[in-house]
Design a protein around this nucleic acid. Sequence first.
DNA 1: AACGAGGGTGAGCAAGCGCTTAGGGTCGCC
DNA 2: GGCGACCCTAAGCGCTTGCTCACCCTCGTT
Lengths: 208, 208
Amino acid sequence: MSAAEETPGGEDVPWGEVTPEAARRLLVAAVEAFAERGYHATTTRDIAGRAGMSPAALYIHYKTKEELLHRISRIGHDRALEILRAAADGGGTAAERLADAVRSFVRWHAERHTTARVVQYELDALGPEHRAEIVELRRESDATVRRIIDEGVAAGEFDVPDVAGTTVAVLSLCIDVSRWFNTQGRRTPDEVGALYADLVLRMVGAQK
Amino acid sequence: MSAAEETPGGEDVPWGEVTPEAARRLLVAAVEAFAERGYHATTTRDIAGRAGMSPAALYIHYKTKEELLHRISRIGHDRALEILRAAADGGGTAAERLADAVRSFVRWHAERHTTARVVQYELDALGPEHRAEIVELRRESDATVRRIIDEGVAAGEFDVPDVAGTTVAVLSLCIDVSRWFNTQGRRTPDEVGALYADLVLRMVGAQK
DNA sequence: AACGAGGGTGAGCAAGCGCTTAGGGTCGCC
DNA sequence: GGCGACCCTAAGCGCTTGCTCACCCTCGTT
């Protein structure tokens, strides 16, 4: 059920669900290129070159450059939503679930910040139907976080005057990690996740 | 000293400092186009067309398309920094100054979200020297916010375990407003500014 | 009336784009 | 060992891109 396959060792293999191997190599190359230069500034020749293939090889596995972006975006959004739902459906108080959601969501946006950058910031490059499909997934992410906050308010754990606005702010804060996070930087994904979980608990007025 | 000229009536005229008028029309057209489609997806023909001119007219006023982006980015960053500094240098407690900074900074990112989107998200499209110049302005924005938080901690107003990390988070939160804010949406720039000022005060543990 | 300067245009160049097509090498399978 | 299925490539088509260039129109000045 997971969006990422696992090795016998047990760790995640990103893009493990993309087969055959040549198609996966192209997709990984596209993620890197899109993250570095943006979708429109990336050429199909560049993608194919990074995957060690000729420009024409791309079109054996994908109909268009936009289909590549869509596949990346779809898989990434599925994974992000899965992470949020796992936290929301976990046990514990609303504060614990919210902290858990933010921690794992932020960690993903930091660790996979190349993927996340494409997923979160290249939405407008998708065609209309593909964009609509992705927008729907985002709505579900929003609803998942909002539900946790709602429950925290109902339980008296949180003090939140504006649930809808706070939900947008929380998600926006987490997503933007993929823009500024740098692997060379001082903080690890775990540290950023912990910091952000703390900040978000403060935003919702959870008592420590 | 203001980055925006004023009419006799007193209200801001954005891009008022750009002359002559034809150059300003082109720049405004470029801001709209870049915000809608992104820098790389925008053609010089599109920019000139929006300004009611032929493609060649653009090159009378700007050497390259990149110079247009740089002018936009430079003016926008100057304005953003000016807003932050005005709040930081204003009177009152650290909490009042921080709330003021967030409120006006967010309001600008919401009101001028087309400009802000270009300014904040098209940094990578700049050439190396131009990018370096803009990165330096961002460092100054960061330092300005950090100073307010530092002072609040020193005065015992705030409780912030990680000042550097919290500064990044606060700026990131504000900047990302330009990505999701929609003029058609339910909230006014003022409302978002007020909400975010409240959220940020909670993040730094300011007592109400 | 002549003129020079500066802001504008129509046409188009060289390069690069997304994508297609004809064909070739390498398999497993009978 | 013959053969079709599957990947992949070299070459290139039609189009768009950023940008240029030769020319022109509209001024204020003399």
